[in-house]
Structure formats: C-alpha cells, structure tokens
Computed example of a mutant assay.
Amino acid sequence: MTSGTRRGGRRRTVSTLIEAATWEDFARRARRDARVWFMLTPDRLLTLTRGEGQALPVWSSRDSAEQALALSDGADRLDVCCVTVQEWNRRWLPSLREKVIGVGADWPTLRAGEARAPLPI
C-alpha cells in the first residue's frame, strides 16, 4: 500500500513511513539517554536471524533493554551493555549497513516470533 505522498521524487509506502517514525522515536530517546543499549552473549554481540537476514536488537534506554531481557528466553546468558550515541552513529551504523544487518529498535522481547521486523539501515 502506498501513501501517495512523493518526497524527493519517490513514492513512500505506509511501511516506510512507519519505519521512519520508529527510527525518529528511537533516535530521540537514545539521544536523551546519550546511549544505545544492546546485549552480549558470553562470546559475542547478540544478533538474531530473521528470515533471510540478521538483526541487531538495540534499545534507547537501559530500562527498556532490561525489560526485554526479563521477557526473553536465555536471559541468564545475556548481559546488557551500551555505547555512546556518537559511537553508534560513527562506527556501528556504517558497519551494520555494510554487513546488511537490520536493527531491532526497542524490541519489547527477544522471544522467537514476538519481535517486530527489523528496520533497514
């Protein structure tokens, strides 16, 4: 379904408008906390496979990350960690874009089948 709105000569779909709003909300909250939160397994950064691709779940606040962790399977094997917003923008986003890994912004849980679709970068 398309919105019929053209911006920059491109037709924007309803889903791309929702993605943009989700990114804006996530970015606003992350700037307020000055951190982007994620989870580590004992040996690596937690990424999830979804369909054909991978997603990196991230949160805009420690509280949101810890709530998602509490509702997730295997929570005892995960640690909540963070990077500054500057580090996220300067190093992490370009790397994720290069590796074609989506971002699971403020997912309420990590349970299989309950997480929303990741946002493309």
Score class of each variant (00 low, 15 high):
D43R: 14
T49M: 08
W107K: 02
C82T: 04
V36Q: 02
S64F: 06
S60W: 07
V83T: 11
E98Y: 08
G104H: 03
N89L: 08
L48C: 08
L45H: 05
E66M: 15
L71R: 15
P57N: 04
G53N: 11
V100L: 11
F38I: 01
R97V: 04
S61R: 03
G104R: 02
V100C: 05
R35K: 15
D76R: 12
V83S: 01
A75M: 09
L69E: 04
G104F: 04
P94T: 02
R35D: 05
L78G: 10
L48Q: 10
Q67L: 11
C82S: 15
W59S: 09
K99N: 08
V103E: 10
G102K: 10
A68P: 05
R28H: 06
K99R: 15
R31F: 00
T84V: 01
M39R: 06
L45I: 14
L45P: 03
R77P: 00
D33L: 00
S60M: 04
W107P: 01
D63S: 14
V100D: 13
I101Y: 09
A105H: 07
R29T: 12
P42D: 06
R28G: 02
R91P: 00
Q86H: 11
V100N: 14
R29L: 13
S64A: 15
A55R: 03
V58H: 10
G102Y: 06
R29K: 12
G74Q: 06
D73L: 07
A30D: 09
Q67F: 01
S61V: 02
V85H: 02
A30P: 07
I101L: 10
E98D: 12
T84D: 12
Q67Y: 02
F38E: 01
D79T: 15
R28Q: 12
R77M: 10
N89K: 08
L48K: 05
A70E: 13
E52W: 02
N89C: 07
T84E: 10
E66C: 09
C81K: 15
W107E: 14
S64T: 05
R44M: 07
A68I: 03
E87D: 14
R62H: 10
T41D: 05
G104W: 08
G51T: 07
D63P: 00
R35H: 13
S72T: 12
W107I: 13
R90W: 02
A65C: 12
R77A: 13
L40F: 03
Q86N: 10
W107N: 07
P94H: 03
A27V: 11
R32C: 03
W92Y: 14
L78M: 14
L93D: 00
A30E: 11
R97F: 02
E66I: 03
L48V: 15
V103P: 00
A68Y: 03
T41A: 10
L56T: 06
A68R: 05
S60H: 09
D79V: 14
A27W: 03
L45Q: 04
S60E: 06
E98S: 11
R44C: 09
R90Y: 05
G53Q: 10
L48A: 08
D106V: 07
F38L: 13
W88C: 11
R62L: 10
G53T: 12
R50M: 15
D73A: 12
Q67M: 06
V58W: 03
A70F: 04
A34I: 00
G104S: 04
G74R: 06
W37S: 00
A70N: 09
W37G: 01
